[in-house]
Computed example of a mutant assay.
Amino acid sequence: MNTIGPYLVQKPTILDIPSPGPTTAHACTLCSRFFVSQSALYSHFRFSTQHEWCEKCSRVFVPTAARDAHFRESSRHNICPTCGRLQDFDTPAELARHLEEFHFCCTSCSPYVYHDSPEELRRHDVAQHNLCIKCGDYFGNANNLLMHQQRHQPRTMRCYGCDHTFKSFSGMLIHLESGACASQMTEDQIDALAHRCYQSRKYVLRGLDGGEGWMYKCPTCYREFMKLSALYQHAEDVMDCGHGCLDKLQVWIAKCV
């Protein structure tokens, strides 16, 4: 009961209503009124014009400024620091949504970063928090965002040997390596083309089986791959691993298929 503040008194008393014996009366010292139960006292605090009531904390305040200071200082309340009016949101998530929608505020930054428009906030989220503008998801780093964005890519890569379309060059290579293309291109033929390209020393390694077949390496990080399609998937997924020799190999394959 001591959370209500200094305006409550509890004391044994004989009430003017029939009862088995002495009971406890609850008094509001601000109004000099007694109540037979805590619920009756709380109801009085809610509706009286003589004082201010905080429902969330079950506390009464005098004057209004004291309640407003409580709202701003208490961690149990979610007060907008920007609005002129005092509005207590039910949850921190609702407050964060309000700050974003009405004040263009990034609550992920500490301290908060305010912007002049929703477009400026979106550009900030893309640059600083790896926001995918297609679906609204956030990612831990730029590479994860880049990998995710491939899901949204249209099928604009037309197969060099048939009319099938793909989202990426690596997807088309998987198709060619599988032997399912109408051009009847095979994985061995793709490997041979990659070897004959004048840039091959930058991305081709001898296989571990005495030279039969080829193993590929990333020309940037030197990670090794058994298939050319896997090398290109890696280059497409890892932002820092793009390399001009792979672009030249792609042009070379387009001419030869």
Results as ranks from 00 to 15, higher is better:
51 H>D: 03
78 N>F: 02
142 A>W: 02
131 L>F: 06
124 H>D: 05
61 F>Y: 13
101 E>T: 13
48 S>L: 06
108 S>P: 04
86 L>K: 07
136 G>E: 08
98 H>L: 04
128 Q>D: 09
103 H>Y: 15
113 V>I: 11
58 S>Y: 09
73 E>P: 02
134 K>P: 02
142 A>M: 05
86 L>W: 06
79 I>D: 01
96 A>G: 05
118 P>G: 03
75 S>C: 07
47 F>G: 13
136 G>T: 08
61 F>W: 04
100 E>K: 14
46 R>A: 12
63 P>A: 02
103 H>F: 13
50 Q>S: 12
88 D>H: 02
113 V>Y: 02
142 A>K: 08
72 R>H: 14
69 A>D: 15
88 D>Q: 01
104 F>R: 00
44 H>M: 07
48 S>W: 04
143 N>E: 12
63 P>S: 00
141 N>C: 14
142 A>F: 03
104 F>C: 09
134 K>F: 12
135 C>G: 09
58 S>Q: 15
145 L>W: 03
106 C>N: 03
51 H>N: 07
91 T>V: 00
73 E>I: 07
90 D>Y: 02
54 C>N: 04
136 G>S: 07
147 M>F: 03
120 E>I: 08
146 L>C: 12
93 A>L: 02
87 Q>V: 15
42 Y>K: 13
46 R>T: 14
50 Q>R: 11
115 H>D: 00
67 R>E: 11
81 P>S: 06
127 A>S: 12
45 F>Q: 08
63 P>W: 03
101 E>K: 11
149 Q>I: 10
107 T>I: 11
66 A>H: 08
84 G>P: 10
112 Y>H: 14
51 H>W: 06
102 F>Y: 09
81 P>C: 06
49 T>A: 10
110 S>N: 11
92 P>G: 00
50 Q>M: 05
55 E>N: 11
124 H>I: 10
129 H>Q: 06
71 F>C: 11
48 S>C: 15
135 C>K: 04
132 C>F: 09
104 F>T: 11
94 E>H: 01
138 Y>E: 01
57 C>E: 05
65 A>N: 10
133 I>K: 04
114 Y>Q: 13
44 H>Q: 06
46 R>H: 09
50 Q>Y: 06
49 T>K: 14
137 D>S: 12
146 L>I: 10
111 P>H: 09
74 S>K: 03
126 V>S: 02
133 I>Q: 10
57 C>F: 01
119 E>L: 13
41 L>P: 12
92 P>Q: 00
127 A>F: 04
131 L>Q: 07
43 S>F: 09
129 H>F: 05
106 C>D: 09
67 R>C: 12
139 F>H: 11
129 H>I: 07
85 R>T: 14
51 H>C: 13
129 H>L: 07
143 N>S: 12
107 T>D: 00
120 E>N: 11
143 N>V: 10
45 F>L: 15
78 N>L: 01
141 N>W: 06
140 G>L: 08
117 S>L: 08
123 R>V: 13
62 V>K: 08
66 A>K: 09
76 R>Q: 09
123 R>I: 10
109 C>Y: 04
120 E>V: 12
79 I>M: 01
149 Q>E: 15
121 L>R: 14
130 N>Q: 05
122 R>P: 00
52 E>F: 14
